[in-house]
Structures are given as structure tokens and as C-alpha cells.
């Protein structure tokens, strides 16, 4: 399944929810937030959302900044 992840085309194997995707990518979920097709989803909401073909996914977190 093809998705657009942080502005890059990625191919994912099989069905998965957002929390499963985060785990599969080895991303530490602390301070992480996901935008799925424009909708902001906090961590509690990830298990209820599956990834689908063509989805636009943004994974962002806060970092040092002024």
C-alpha cells in the first residue's frame, strides 16, 4: 500500500493502525503527533485509525527551537 509519509512516497506492507505504524518505524511516541489527511490525532486516537492506500500522513514532534 502506497502512502505519503512526511512528504515522501512510502510503501507499507499490509494493514495497520497508526500506533502499529509508529511501532514498526521504530519511532519513540513521546511528544509525537500525527496528522492523517489533515486531521490532527493525538496518541490516544492512533489505535482507532487504520492506514489506507493514498493516505497523507505527517508525523511531527517538538524539538529545540526559539
Amino acid at each position: 500500500m502506497k502512502v505519503r509519509l512526511n512528504g515522501v512516497d512510502e510503501v507499507l506492507d499490509g494493514e495497520m493502525t497508526l500506533d502499529e505504524l509508529v511501532a514498526r518505524l521504530g519511532i519513540e511516541p513521546t511528544n509525537l503527533v500525527i496528522e492523517l489527511n489533515g486531521a490532527v490525532l493525538s496518541r490516544e486516537e492512533w489505535p482507532a485509525h487504520s492506514v489506507h492506500e493514498g493516505d497523507a500522513i505527517e508525523m511531527v514532534r517538538f524539538v529545540g527551537g526559539g
Binding site: 518505524l25 519511532i27 517538538f62 524539538v63 526559539g66
Partner: peptide, 18 residues
Amino acid sequence: VTVALRRVDVRDPHDRTL
């Protein structure tokens, strides 16, 4: 303290700045 929001680098996802 101020912080910024940035895309995670999927290939190197660990931010260490904070």
C-alpha cells in the same frame, strides 16, 4: 521555554535536542 515543531525523520527518528 519555547520549542519548535518539526517533521520526524523517519529514517532517523530520534530527536535528541530536548
